[in-house]
Structures are given as C-alpha cells and as structure tokens.
Write a protein that binds this DNA or RNA. Structure first.
Length: 1024
RNA sequence: GCCGAAGUGGCGGAAUGGCAGACGCACCGGAUUCAAAAUCCGGCGAGGUUCACCCCUCGUGUGGGGUCGAGUCCCACCUUCGGCACCA
C-alpha cells in the first residue's frame, strides 16, 4: 500500500545524487565551451554553523536558489551552486571558555550537523566545493588578501583603465609606488617606512574597545547592551587600544557610484547610500594663532605659552578688532594657499553650510580633539579636564541618548572667523564627534538646530544670516526649539533662503552663496570644497582567539618594546596558524587572547637580527565572508586564491540571496575588498554581486495575547503564568486599555486606567473571534485581544525545528511550504497547517501518477500511453508557461498554485495520458525534487531528471476558441459574453449589445461612449 | 524625527489600469466507512432580495482626485514592520 512516503523516497534520491555526483560542477579548465552566456553562478549567504542547528529561516533562501539552479540546469545552463561555512566567531570560543573544548572541535561538530541538515533537504549543492572560513587552506588566502590590502595605498587622482576596460580616476596602488616627499626621504629609511605605513589601506590606530573588568575580557559591540555586558550585566569601560583599521572610506565614492547599475532592490541601494552618507561642503580654517592673541612675525607654533595668551583675550565680543597676527596669517595664506594639513595655528572645521559663516558665533571641538589642551586657559583647566574625563567614559550610546540635554565647557580661548575677523569663543562639547569631519565645527545657532539648542542653554549670541522664503512655516522640530530670547519668541531656521547680515553677500541665495564663498575661500587659501562621509574606516581587529591571526610582525627595540615598525609575513610563510592554547580563559586585561600564546609563536628573530613580536589581534568574522564567493570558484587551488581564468569565467555572482540583516555591512565590506582586488588586478569585475535578493524573515505562528489583571492564573511547568478556560474570564482587561512601558530596561504592560501592571497571557485561538478591526474574546466581547506573530526565539518558545518538519512531512513539503507561504522577500508567519496543506498536495500528485492501493510501487492503472485531449494539452501548456515565467520572476508561490490547479484538474480524469504527466513532473522537480525523481523513475525513465530539458510551452496549444468577455455599463459589471477568441471590436460590441442581460438595460438610453478592448472587456457609458 | 517597505475574507496570499479574493489553510455540509483516519465532492467577503435559478447594493487602511473603468495612477493622512538617528 505505498502511499506518498517521503521517508522512503528522500534518502533514496539523496544517496543517488551523492553517489552519481549529479550536481558536481565541471572544472572550467575542462570545459570546451567557455561561452559566458551559459554560465550561472547562484550563491546563498553561507551560514554561521551555530550550536542550535539549522533554523527554518535558512531553507527559505536556500530553496529559492535551489529552484533557480535546478531550473537553469534543465535549460542547459552551466551552474555553480556551492555551500560553505562562516565558522569563525564568538560562540565556539565562549563554549571553549566554559568547557575547555577547542573551538575547532565545536565548530566541526556544528558543521557536521548543518551539513547533515542541509543534505536532508535535498539542495543541489556541489559539495566538492564545500569550504569553511576556518579551514587552514582557506584562511591562508584570507591572510594573503589582508597582505594585499596592507600593501596598497589609495591614489584618488590616478587615471587608469581597469580589467573591465573602463577608464576611471582613483586606484588602490602598490605601496612601493607611493611617492615619498623629499623631506621625508631626507629623514632616512625609517621615516619612509612610517610614512608608507600611514598611507596603507590597512593601518593601525588607537580606538576604544569595550573592556569589561568583571568578565576580564574585551567585548564585541553586540555583546554590550546599554553600556553593560549582555552576559552578567556588568559595567563596560571604553579603553583605548591599538587597533587595525581598513581604509574603506577611500572607496566611499566608488562604493556609491558602482551601486547604480546593479540589479538590487532600490531600497537596499538606498540603505547602502545612507550608510555611506556622502555630504558636500567646505573645510574652513579659523585662526587661533599662537594662542589666538598676537603673533610676532611668521607662523610660530603655539607652544606652552599659547594658552596663557588666549586667556588675556577679552570675553566674547564679536566683531572685535582683528589682531595684527591674524592679518599676517591671512596674507601668508593668500600667498601659499590652503595647506593639506591644518597646522597648529588654526582650527579646521567642516561645514555643509559655508553660506552661514557670517552667523558663526562660537566654535565647538570634540572632547577628544588634539587641541583641547592647547586651547584651554589656566582658569578653565579644571572644568575642561573634568568634562573630557566624563565624556571619555560615556559610550557612543550614552552620548546620543542624552541628546536632549546639551553639555559643554568653554576652553577660555577664541578663534577668528576668516570672513569677517570676528572673535568667537571655542567650546568643548560632546555633541561634536571626533570621528566625523575634522572633529571641530563653527556653530551657527540661528540656522542649525543643535547649535541653537546649545546657544540657548549657554546664552551664546545668535545672529540670523539667512532670510527664509516669504511663505516659510517653521518645521515641527524648529518650532519645538522655540525659546524666549531678549523677551522675544524665536526659533531656528535650518532651511535655505537668501543671505542677510552677511556683508556684501546680502541677498544672495543659499545655493549661489555656497558656490561663491567656497571659491573665494579657496582663492584666499582659507578653505576648500570638501566631501565627507558618515561611513568610518573599518575597525578590523578583535581581541579573540577564534579568528584569523594577522600575518604581521612588530619590530622590538633593545628593551623589548615595539618600535611601531612592522614586517608582513612573506606569502610563502602563510598560513599563520593559531597557537596552541591550554585554556581559553580571558586574559584578564584588555590584551588580546593571542597574547597568551607560547613564546615560540609570539617571538622570533629576523635574519637581520631584529627581534620581532607577532600581532596578537585577530580578524573579525567579516573577513572570511568578504571573499568566499571567489574561493568557491576554485576551492582547491594551492597556487592562487583563485585562478584568473576561472575567475573570469564565473564572476560576477549572478544571483545572491540572503537575509536583509546583511544588507549593509557584509555587502559593503565584500564590495570594498573586491574593489581593492580589482585595483590590484586580481579580479576582472568591479562588483561581486550582480543581482541581490533579500528573503524576508519567517516569524513564529500567530499568537493571541490577552492581558490579565490580578490573581487566578495557573503556572506552567516552566514557571510562567498561564491562562486556561479554568481561570475564567473575569481577570481580562482589553488590549486597547493596556500600554507598554519601559521600566529599568524591561518592557512591562500596564493598565491605562489604574497604572497597575498586568500579565500578558497566550489565549487559544478557539476562544477568539474577529470583530471590526480587531479580535475579541468570544466569551467576553468587550475584551479585545492582540494578535501578532513574533520573531522566533528560544525564550518565546516559538522556534520551529526543520528536522521535525522533515521527519513528519518530508523535505519536499518543507521546501514547498516555505516557497508557498508568500513572496520570497516578504516577512511572513509560520503555520503548521500550511505545511499540512502542501503535504496533501504532494500526496495528490503522488496518487495522480502512482497506484497507492498496490502492494508495491507501480503506476496508477489510470496512467496510460494514450494521446492527450485538446483540453489536457491546453492545461499542460498553460501550466508550463505560467510556471516557467513565475520561476524567472522568482514568484515561487504563484508557480506552486499553478501546479496545484493542474493537479486539481487532471487528477480526477481517467485515463491520464503519460505524455502530459511527464512534463508536469519536470515542472515540479525544482520544487519537490525527491518526489519528482521518484515519479520520473516510475514513469519509466532511468537515472536522474536533473538534466532533462525543461518543457516548452507551445503557443498552438494555448489558443482558445472561445473567450469570456466581461461587459460593463458605466464601469459596473453587468454580464459576461462568450465570443470567438479573435473577435474584433465591432463583433465584440455587437455581441455585448445583444446580450440578454445588457440589451434591456441599454434600451431607451443614449450610449455616450462605448469602450471596447478586444480580448479584454466592453464598457457602455450611458446617459438617461 | 529621517529614510525604506507594507496595509486586500477568519488566516497566508492572488490579480500587464479591465470579471477583486486565484491557490492554500481554517470552518461548514455531504459521500465513503461498522466506526475512525485518509480520501473524494460541494459551500465559504458583508448585506439585501427570492420558493428557487437568479439578481441587486456595499467592499482592497482613511479622506480626496483624476479615468469610460482604480486594489493598481496622483495628493494628503493613519497604522504596522525594518533601518538610521547630535554626521555639522
């Protein structure tokens, strides 16, 4: 009695594909046909093999790509479809801390679980190409690429033609080609090396890390929540540490520009553009002199005495007499131009509104700005130091969270506005970030909301310099900042208009003003046009064990201290393996884990006698995922990271599918590395991923939540309060009377009327009905209930385990259900009865072909070698056409409905011609490959159908003799007429007019107009 | 706050500007069965009308606008979800 038995069929075909290497991609070298129009590279975002195994979210994207690949193979495409593991990362290391198990062992176990699970779903990966970022032979090349980045500097002015044949400006060039200024060269070899190091795309920089003293370890950003450790809720400090940075900002412009032609959704492109955050404006130097006082001749350095001089300045008097040293400085600038480095006598600021320079009434520098000490006068010293200390302890989050309240402190010093010679006080405030622009701003309170807020709080002068357009209404935010100044209600204006109080520029429009003043400042050597990015350089080091070690050595002096000079490992010395560690306990200080390595790993003496210490930071998890798509093309190559001919054939990835959570960082980082490799001639395309699709998240089953006041609840075995009918209904309050509140970081529900807190409880669906907009309790219709699907999480207990689904319904059902749920890119809730539904469909397909009453597997007696009827052929070819088009559009849910329609129609018929069932099985095969293979075999074919040509929809079977055409009167449907398929306008109109339901309605009325669309519809517009 | 996506039956969803609700789930009725499971057939937006077949009105978040005709296009707003959030 063989029913549809997924448990029998699926392992059988998985073993068959394995044994026959059905999905093995032939090597490019062995291909006679290198026609690139035939190649298709389809890539899934490879998973992090976590200890909890596969999640139902994974097979969603993986099934979609698998369908595309199986479909493409049957259309004769040469498909590359690999899978691997993004296996470095924290959890394995944390497990090691707890149990002492080496992360490599944990990782291997997890990978084995993932591989088994993926194989059980029947994906057509070429498992010969499986790679893990933790493989020694893989990260050897990750380290190699790092060395390429290390060996590169960015020349923004370089004009060249890339491997793609395009002419462009700006190139990552070998460090050996970096021009060395004569004065640097004169200082000797060491100075040259340090100069080069400053220009590399991989460079070192002091940056704060999250150091948690209680845990004795450095934490990743995602392990820090609200300034405390996620684990244990201990305080986290920000301590500066030497870090590796990658100069991604050098590529910001190209990362924006090259986005344009890609086949990505516009919203992802916008997300990336916003992340890069390009802004255009000007850099302007404000003179602070040798302490903003007087300067005798030349451009003397500030020095120790500088701050004292500033202290002598009179307090905030705008438009005071410019000092003579300011004049001297200006003429020096006019003669020599705007210097690349600002020097010590000026504060360099960045602004997008150079047109508001006349309204600058003070300046602000970030607490970390290098000029803080210099500009602080003796009497302000204590206040400034206290402020900066406090600021350094705040995390970025604290600084932004406290946005409502501006803080700051006056340095005691003044700067001089280059456009009008006004003396403006210099303040320190943490609303200015050291990491953006120059870390210093000119404040124009009249036209900047933040500056306004600050100026109001500290009573600094506000000078309007932009006249709003005549019918300007202040925006919401502007109005919110309304303040009483000198007895007058005023608010800031951040928009564009015409200049006032701006000397000879009065009357100029904002746009024109910007252009003019930028040009004039440039001519006077006081400023220049500048572009800034919100994007920061990429902090590329972690203090972990389970990441790629850096192939870098630090030179040590006689005392064993690092000199700051570095030596990369030679290519032939790669890979740099992990040192052996006995235990994985944290170091107990902010030093990286690898500093616990044995001496012989940490130190060596170079041939020239210099003592060297290894870099002890490790690379972030992003590193391995930045280039895996390249390695998949040539995973076993021991000579190159990828063979150039292979790269040229397969790249770019034609379709890349993954979660939207990687829409920004992973894609940006990978694109950046790809561009560096392109500039250095290692890859032939500018972009790695031609088409990108983000699958939507799968949520848990819909839950109904009620709110309960007072006692009377039961307790679940896990100890959570629980409701059942036995509790009655008296304790419920309406969901619409409940508000969500944050109390000490936890969200709690409170009853609006009394403020008392209430319990949220799950209510079974059978207690609920729909009323109007929402849901209510059947028993208590006044009580409204929340209905929502939540993200799957262990704590909520709504996680669906794919293994269980496969066990109960089979992989084909899981695959089909995930595709049938709705559009791939949409967020959608899980529903077990939906799985049941597609399972029943597969059962119907089975019975349409196989005899489920026989004792062994054989064809249904209704399936016969008889010619198909016209109607059957039309059904088949309509289905072929629709399914084919839907797969091409990646509209898998509608493709499946089409196949259901076919089955509904054909399965009841007898006899069922083999000739229409066979093509149908082929249509089904990308979606439910195991069942399709089994039925294909049953229909008398040997071997796999994986390379059988895809059925073609033939037009001749699609034409209908008669069609139904809707007839409307005044746009409302009134009848349907049957007419011959090719009926022209006149015939259609005639048929419509004479229709028994229409004729009486037209009688005696004037037909004002008649719209006839052949093959579509007829509409009479009548009067009277 | 800014940017993006989306609001269609009880639920998931379908509809090149042309018959709204395909397909599936849930539910209801029937057949089969000793009975059940499984399976098969039928019904299923709301309201009205009718013995019945039929037919009519309303209906795609809200309000407006264009069109012979709008779920689809335009304007304004509301709600939900995602991202960013002192970036000068």
């Amino acid at each position: 009695m063989p029913r549809y038995d997924a448990q029998r069929i699926e392992p059988k075909w998985q073993a068959y594909w394995d044994k026959h290497q059905t999905f093995r991609t032939p090597d490019v070298m062995g291909l006679s046909d290198l026609d690139r129009t035939r190649k298709l590279y389809v890539l899934d975002m490879f998973p992090y093999p976590s200890g909890s195994g596969l999640h139902v979210g994974h097979p969603e994207g993986y099934t979609a790509t698998d369908i595309v690949c199986r479909f493409a193979r049957m259309q004769g495409k040469h498909v590359l479809h690999p899978m691997g593991w993004d296996a470095f990362g924290l959890p394995a290391e944390e497990h090691a801390v707890k149990t002492g198990t080496h992360p490599r062992i944990t990782t291997e176990q997890n990978i084995n679980t993932f591989r088994r699970q993926l194989k059980s779903l029947g994906f057509s990966y070429d498992w010969n190409r499986e790679i893990s970022t933790t493989d020694v032979e893989y990260y050897r090349w990750t380290q190699w690429i790092f060395l390429q980045v290390f060996d590169t500097w960015y020349d923004p002015a370089f004009e060249w033609t890339g491997k793609d044949g395009q002419r462009r400006v700006g190139k990552g060039r070998p460090i050996a080609e970096l021009p060395i200024p004569a004065d640097v060269k004169a200082q000797g070899e060491e100075a040259v090396r340090r100069y080069q190091d400053r220009h590399r795309l991989a460079y070192q920089h002091e940056a704060p890390v999250n150091w948690c003293p209680a845990l004795g370890t450095v934490l990743a950003n995602e392990e820090v929540v609200d300034g405390r450790s996620e684990r244990g809720n201990h305080p986290v400090e920000r301590v500066p540490l030497r870090q590796w940075m990658l100069r991604i900002t050098a590529y910001a412009e190209r990362l924006i520009d090259d986005l344009e032609p890609l086949d990505w959704s516009e919203s992802i492109k916008i997300l990336q553009r916003n992340w890069i955050g390009r802004s255009e404006g000007a850099e302007v130097d404000f003179y602070v002199g040798a302490g903003a006082g007087s300067v005798e001749g030349g451009m003397g350095r500030g020095g120790e005495g500088g701050t004292a001089a500033a202290g002598e300045s009179s307090p905030s008097t705008l438009n005071a007499q410019p000092s003579t040293s300011f004049d001297a400085w200006k003429s020096h600038r006019a003669a020599n131009g705007f210097p690349a480095e600002p020097g010590e006598d000026v504060l360099r600021i960045y602004t997008t509104r150079p047109d508001t320079l006349y309204g600058a009434t003070y300046m602000v520098i970030a607490p970390e700005h290098p000029f803080v000490a210099r500009l602080t006068t003796a009497d302000q010293k204590d206040a400034v130091e206290a402020y900066c200390r406090k600021a350094s302890q705040k995390s970025d989050l604290d600084r932004t969270d406290l946005a409502k309240d501006k803080t700051g402190v006056f340095t005691g010093s003044y700067a001089i506005n280059p456009v009008n010679g006004a003396r403006v006080p210099v303040w320190i405030a943490d609303y200015v970030l050291i990491s953006y622009g120059t870390g210093a701003i000119m404040a124009v309170p009249a036209h900047d909301l933040r500056d306004w807020e600050f100026a109001v709080k500290f009573q600094l002068p506000i000078i309007p310099v932009v006249q709003p357009p005549a019918k300007h209404e202040p925006s919401k935010e502007e109005r919110a900042l309304t303040a009483t100044i000198n007895g007058e209600e005023r608010c800031p204006f951040a928009g564009e208009g015409t200049a006032i109080n701006s000397g000879r520029y009065d009357g100029t429009t904002t746009l024109e003003f910007k252009k003019q003043i930028t040009a004039e400042l440039a001519k006077a050597g006081l400023g220049k046009k500048a572009v800034n990015y919100r994007l920061r350089d990429w902090l590329f080091s972690r203090q972990r064990y389970w990441g790629e070690p850096f192939p870098i050595w630090h030179e040590l002096d006689a005392q064993g201290q690092p000199t700051g000079l570095m030596r990369p490992d030679k290519e032939t010395e790669l890979p740099v393996l992990h040192p052996h560690l006995e235990d994985f306990k944290p170091t107990g200080n902010p030093e990286p884990m690898l500093s616990k390595a044995p001496e012989d790993w940490l130190y060596k003496t170079a041939a020239d006698g210099v003592r060297l210490k290894r870099e002890t930071n490790s690379m972030p998890q992003w590193a391995g995922s930045c280039w895996y798509y390249l390695r998949f093309c040539d995973p076993k190559n021991t000579q190159h990271f990828i063979d150039p001919a292979v790269e040229k054939y397969w790249l770019p990835v034609d379709l890349y599918v993954g979660g939207a959570d990687h829409a920004v960082l992973h894609l940006l980082y990978a694109r950046f590395w790809h561009k560096v490799l392109f500039d250095r001639g290692h890859v032939s395309t500018v972009e790695p991923f031609q088409k990108l699709v983000n699958q939507g998240m799968i949520l848990g089953e819909v839950e109904f939540t009620g709110f309960w006041r007072g006692p009377g609840l039961e307790t679940s075995p896990e100890g959570h309060p629980q409701w059942s009918t036995a509790c009655g209904f008296a304790g419920f309050v309406s969901a619409r009377d409940v508000a969500e509140k944050e109390i000490e970081g936890n969200s709690v529900h409170v009853f609006r009327r009394s403020g008392e807190s209430v319990q949220s409880v799950r209510v079974p669906a059978d207690q609920i009905e729909k009323k109007g907009e929402g849901f209510i309790l059947k028993a208590e219709p006044a009580i409204s209930i929340d209905a929502r699907a939540f993200k799957m999480s262990k704590s909520r207990g709504n996680v669906i385990n794919p293994d269980k689904v496969v066990e109960q319904y089979g992989a084909d059902s899981l695959r089909l259900y995930e595709m049938f749920m709705g559009p791939l890119e949409q967020v959608k809730p899980w529903s077990m009865s939906g799985v049941e539904g597609v399972f029943r469909f597969l059962g119907r397909v089975w019975r349409m072909v196989a005899d489920d009453r026989a004792d062994d597997v054989k064809l249904s007696p209704a399936v016969q070698d008889v010619p198909a009827s016209e109607a059957q052929l039309r059904t088949l070819h309509k289905t072929i056409k629709a399914v084919t088009e839907d797969i091409e559009k990646m509209s898998f849910n509608t493709a499946i409905s089409r196949m259901m329609e076919f089955t509904n129609e054909i399965s009841g018929q007898e006899p069922r011609p083999k000739s229409i069932l066979e093509p149908f099985v082929l249509l089904l095969s990308p979606f439910a490959p195991h069942l399709a293979e089994e039925l294909w075999e049953l229909l008398g074919h040997g071997g796999s159908l994986a390379y059988t040509p895809w059925p073609r929809a033939e037009e001749k079977y699609l034409v209908e003799n008669e069609v139904e055409i809707p007839v409307q009167i005044n746009g409302k449907l009134r009848a349907v007429v049957r007419v011959p398929a090719g009926a022209d306008q006149a015939a259609l109109k005639a048929a419509a007019e004479s229709h028994e339901a229409i004729a009486p309605q037209l009688a005696g009325k004037t037909i004002a107009k008649c719209v006839v669309v052949p093959g579509r519809m007829v509409n009479f517009v009548v009067k009277g």
